[in-house]
Amino acid sequence: MKESALSRENLLDQRRELMASLKYASFIQQAVLPHQRYMDNTLKDFFVLHKPRDIVSGDFYYCSRKEDYIVVAAGDCTGHGVPGALLSIMGVSFLNEILSIRGPVRSSRILNLLRERVMKALHQKGHELENKDAIDMALCVFNTKTSELQYSGANNPLYFIRKKVLTEIKADKMPVGINAIEENSFTNHTVQLKPGDNVYIFSDGYADQFGGSQNKKFKYGPFKELLIRISDRPMVKQYGELEHVIDTWRGSEEQVDDILIFGIKFI
């Protein structure tokens, strides 16, 4: 009896230590994500709905300004929790490094360069038994002078809503990391933005959340409808509505994955 009480106490101690360690790791992860004030100054009207499933998250968002360009991204690293978080920190660091290199600011180029770094860091060479971790990502580059939006996607699309009409720009079917057969250049899509246009980039966590009366996935159809319905509202309201809807949908079900939606309204 005494022994089992002791071992339970040990387990509890270990759990407490683990939780403290994870909590601290989440501070570090938060620190590498863009600061609220920086984003406020850079983007004006936007929201980031980021709901990690665990203490640390495999989803991450990014925002940086270089000359006349604003680069934003929503990334989803394979897995969640600690492994995803480590990869996400790598992703943010690499993006910072890439934007410091001389050369044209182009969304496809950024993803191409990011993929090289991820592959190198994870020693991915296309061998059978090697690490296959990667990042799904939607990345946009806004030209503040010309109002041109560039978008490149690694498995994650971009939704663009103008006057309650949603346009989906499909992503390339490959991740930022080693691909199944071969790596190709990411496609560089461009859209001319107008005031009032809404742009959304996100991970798959929202649409894949189980819940509702029949405990099913939320799915992309209702997600798109929801975005269309709320698109004329200010971004802060949209954030509240999106959070409310998914919380209600989830009910008492467990959150299955990290959730990230990055919405930007062009003014």
């Binding site: 993929r115 991915q124 060479k125 790596e183």
Partner: peptide, 18 residues
């Protein structure tokens, strides 16, 4: 050549080149 094309058509390897 871009890194991707260089890898595909010149050195024919798939590792990350930074």
């Amino acid at each position: 050549l871009s890194t991707i094309d260089f890898k595909k058509y010149v050195i024919q390897v798939r590792e990350g080149i930074t």
